[in-house]
């Protein structure tokens, strides 16, 4: 197994790419910490992992965008584990609004979860990783952060911010043998996508060279790679998982 006894923390682990990543990481032997607000859904993920015959993850229900809650969560974590091998900053929200309709509350909400939470978790996770001079931080960006899309100005800005944060942190943490990379998924079949009309769905698929949406498991495989010893010399990279998406 690629991740035998590696301690890996993943935010937004109750659904979509986060949940798929949790299941995949566990199948490779990782000891997981699952974070999200919805305790019941987190426990469902934990139950599934246990049913796979893997160790039951530590479930931490908290608001990832609240710095005090993040700090308390790390305090709780340290009561259970002495090391942290990988931090997967996956929690995120997507809200559409054309420019005239963007509200300040929406900007605050999207940046709080997509950007601030990522920075706070990198801050605390790296302090634990420094103790062992080893670790991997994986931030979930999006193709929208590079290519943009109408109606997604705030979301796109937040996902571009993650790239900037990843690149800077990778330079800062490299002397401690801590890698920091970002993944930019393209059009992935998650709950978010299933709200699209058939016409919109087909429009998006037609912009993909592989002519299909990706699966959460295909993104999860990249999370596994970046968490593992297979990527020990990879840092400061943005890895697209998009099937050759054009825009």
């Amino acid at each position: 197994m690629l991740l035998e006894n590696k301690v890996i923390w993943i935010t937004g682990a109750s659904r979509g790419i986060g949940k798929a990543s949790a299941l995949r990481l566990a199948s490779e032997g990782a000891l997981l910490v699952l974070a999200a607000r919805d305790e019941a859904k987190l426990n469902e993920t934990a139950d599934e992992i246990e049913q796979q015959g893997c160790s039951r993850p530590l479930v931490l229900p908290y608001d990832v965008s609240n710095v005090q809650s993040v700090k308390e969560a790390f305090g709780m974590f340290l009561k259970h584990h002495k090391r942290l091998d990988a931090m997967v900053n996956n929690a995120g929200i997507l809200e559409e609004a054309l420019l005239p309709m963007i509200t300040p509350e929406q900007v605050d909400r999207i940046f709080a979860i997509n950007v601030y939470a990522t920075i706070y978790h990198m801050q605390y996770a790296s302090r634990i990783m420094m103790r062992n001079k080893s670790g991997s931080i994986i931030n979930l960006s999006s193709i929208i952060g590079q290519a943009g899309k109408e109606g997604l100005t705030v979301y796109g800005a937040s996902k571009a911010a993650i790239v900037g944060a990843t690149l800077s942190a990778s330079k800062e943490l490299a002397p401690f043998n801590i890698r920091v990379n970002a993944i930019a998924p393209g059009f992935i079949d998650t709950d978010m996508v299933q709200t699209l009309s058939e016409q919109k769905y087909q429009e998006r698929v037609s912009a993909i060279k592989m002519r299909r949406a990706g699966t959460p498991e295909e993104v999860a495989n990249t999370v596994v790679y970046l968490s593992s010893e297979l990527s020990t010399y990879v840092t400061g990279q943005l890895i697209g998982v998009n099937g050759g998406m054009l825009e």
């Binding site: 302090r127 634990i128 103790r131 401690f176």
Partner: peptide, 14 residues
Amino acid sequence: MALIATLDDEFNIM
């Protein structure tokens, strides 16, 4: 940064 990490670790604090 290394000093902070070591102090956290040695004195079991954050």
